[in-house]
């Protein structure tokens, strides 16, 4: 009988193989940015350097020094009127004045970061202890992930994402030769990094870190430059081209998801989030209601776990501390709030 500390069937010994899977799935940077109105070379340079900030190889201050002029030229007022993010500081939120000035559609950054409403429901499990001070984290047990894609579709159903936008894919890779073959299934939501290069790179501060661990996207400020898509080491960001399912599915656009707590009504024309970059939000709107994210609730392998990483006694904290735990691309210095068990 196998011991729990042994490598498990379907999980490779080395995290690097899984990292390589992420790269295999990622879009080509130049190709992606060539589809936008913004400078491709600038985007690639900013994205690469944003990752260096995450890795601690470049300071945020030096970063903006280096790009201030080019960003100003490229993005004009949208750049000038927003503060420059720094993912180095422990408190990544900005001051109240700046936040007010930006009139974030999801409330000021400050309020979003600090005063996320506590869950309403007392009897649902996740937040029965919820006090609004959580740092939400997810732990995915690869031994128990059966690679069924239920999370992928649950996410589509919950977040009503358009064709081509899938916040939560399951990567699959084969190792070995017949008959000693294994396959690895790696679900890949947004990592909700503690040091997110996507935040560092954003010239308009449309994406930013909240105190609850979730990386927010303010669709009303996002200009769709897609630099963040290139900066994300995990390929977890997608552009909303405005596609829809209307040909095949009646009333498909009647319902949208209140992502980040904002109910935007029907999906219409080129209104946000059309034209914006989108990604997994840990189902913030469900967390606020005291529910698990849709992917966690539905996981048929019982592989996904959600909880408060700031609570050392929480199940996810214990799992994240286990010898089996690892993060994707740990060398990137991003410190994801999504942990995996091998």
């Amino acid at each position: 009988m196998s011991s729990r500390d042994d490598p498990q069937p379907g999980v490779p010994d080395v995290g690097r193989e899984i990292d390589a899977m992420v790269d295999d799935e990622a879009a080509d940077a130049r190709e992606e940015l060539s589809k936008t109105d913004h400078d491709t070379d600038l985007g690639i340079a900013m994205a690469e350097d944003a990752k260096r900030v995450s890795r601690g190889e470049l300071s945020a201050e030096a970063y903006w020094e280096r790009y201030d002029e080019a960003a100003d030229r490229e993005f004009g007022d949208a750049y000038r009127e927003t503060p420059n993010p720094s993912i180095e500081s422990d408190d990544q939120t900005i001051d109240a004045g700046a936040a007010d000035a930006m009139s974030c559609s999801v409330g000021s950054m400050d309020s979003v970061a600090c005063d996320l409403p506590a869950g309403e429901s007392g009897d649902a499990a996740v937040d029965s202890e919820s006090d609004g001070d959580e740092r939400w984290g997810m732990v995915i047990d690869l031994e128990k992930c059966v690679g069924c894609d239920s999370c992928t579709v649950a996410c589509k159903a919950e977040n009503r994402t358009p064709p081509g936008v899938s916040y939560n894919v399951v990567m699959e890779e084969e190792h070995g030769d017949f008959p000693d073959v294994t396959r690895t299934n790696v679900p890949r939501p947004c990592m909700q990094c503690e040091n997110p290069p996507c935040v560092q790179v954003c010239p308009v501060s449309a994406t930013y870190k909240m105190d609850n661990g979730v990386v927010n996207v303010d669709y009303d400020r996002c200009i769709g430059c897609r630099y963040c898509m290139i900066a994300c080491p995990y390929g977890a960001r997608y552009f909303d081209f405005g596609e829809n399912y209307d040909d095949e599915v009646a009333e498909a656009g009647e319902v949208t998801s209140p992502e980040y707590g904002v109910d935007r009504g029907k999906r219409e024309g080129d209104e946000s989030p059309v034209g914006n970059v989108r990604k997994c939000s840990f189902c913030t709107h469900r967390l606020e209601r005291g529910e698990e994210p849709a992917c966690v609730e539905t996981c048929i392998g019982d592989a996904r776990n959600m909880g408060d990483l700031d609570d050392p006694d929480s199940e996810v904290s214990e799992m994240a501390d286990s010898p089996r735990a690892f993060q994707l691309k740990e060398h990137e210095g991003t410190d994801p709030n999504v942990h995996y068990l091998r």
């Binding site: 649902a124 499990a125 996740v126 069924c148 894609d149 239920s150 992928t152 579709v153 649950a154 529910e291 698990e292 966690v296 609730e297 539905t298 996981c299 048929i300």
Partner: peptide, 8 residues
């Protein structure tokens, strides 16, 4: 703690 599972 789940509210119930539904496959894809």
């Amino acid at each position: 703690l789940s509210g119930g599972r539904i496959c894809l």
